[in-house]
Amino acid sequence: IQLFSRPDFLGDHFSFEDDQAALPASFRPQSCRVHGGSWILFDETNFEGDQHILSEGEFPTLTAMGCLASTVLGSLQK
């Protein structure tokens, strides 16, 4: 999965292949690309809070990911 700090796959980005119990504190994903398989994104660290399940594809905004525009993602799980 690739996470981007701005909508439309712009800004800083991080790529992950494994579960992340905590995303970098200063990084707030605003768009993402899922390459193969599914990922669960969580509103809180340690895989807690609301879950957003994404299958392979491109998600140019938080709302395209099924999140509110104000959502701050905290962790993710493959």
Rank of each mutant, 00 (worst) to 15 (best):
D18M: 09
F27M: 03
A69K: 12
V72Q: 15
T63G: 13
L23R: 01
W39C: 04
D18K: 10
F59W: 09
E56M: 09
Q30R: 10
Q20P: 03
T45L: 11
A25L: 11
T61Y: 04
M65T: 11
E44H: 10
A22M: 13
G57P: 00
I1T: 05
E48F: 08
C32P: 02
S5V: 02
Q20R: 07
G74C: 13
G37V: 03
A21Q: 10
D18L: 05
F59C: 04
T61H: 08
T61G: 05
I40D: 03
R6D: 14
D43Q: 10
E58G: 06
S5C: 00
H13E: 14
S38G: 08
C32K: 00
S55D: 15
L23I: 07
N46L: 05
V34S: 02
F14I: 15
A22L: 10
F16D: 01
L68C: 15
R28D: 05
I53C: 13
C32F: 02
T71V: 09
V72N: 15
W39K: 01
G11L: 05
R33E: 04
T45I: 14
S75K: 07
E44C: 11
E17Y: 15
S26T: 12
Q2N: 08
P60A: 04
P7H: 02
F9D: 02
L68N: 15
A21K: 11
I53F: 13
A22E: 13
V34F: 02
T45V: 14
L23D: 00
L10Y: 10
E48L: 11
V72A: 14
G49V: 04
K78D: 05
I40M: 09
S70V: 07
E58I: 05
D50P: 12
E17M: 11
G11N: 03
G11V: 03
H13C: 15
H35I: 15
I53L: 13
P60T: 00
T63L: 11
F16S: 04
F16A: 06
D12Q: 13
G66C: 06
L76R: 01
S38K: 11
V34H: 05
S15C: 12
Q2L: 05
F27N: 02
A22K: 13
Q30W: 05
T63S: 14
N46F: 07
A25Y: 10
V34R: 00
F14T: 07
E48I: 08
C67E: 01
P29R: 02
T63K: 15
S31P: 07
F59E: 01
L54N: 04
G49A: 03
D50H: 15
S26D: 14
H35K: 14
D18S: 14
A25S: 13
L3A: 04
I40S: 05
G36Q: 11
F27A: 00
I53R: 08
C67K: 04
G37M: 05
L54I: 14
G11R: 02
T61D: 14
S26Q: 12
S5E: 11
F16M: 01
A25Q: 11
D18Q: 12
D18V: 10
G74P: 04
E17V: 13
S5H: 07
M65A: 07
L54P: 04
G66N: 07
F14N: 07
H13G: 10
F59N: 08
T71H: 09
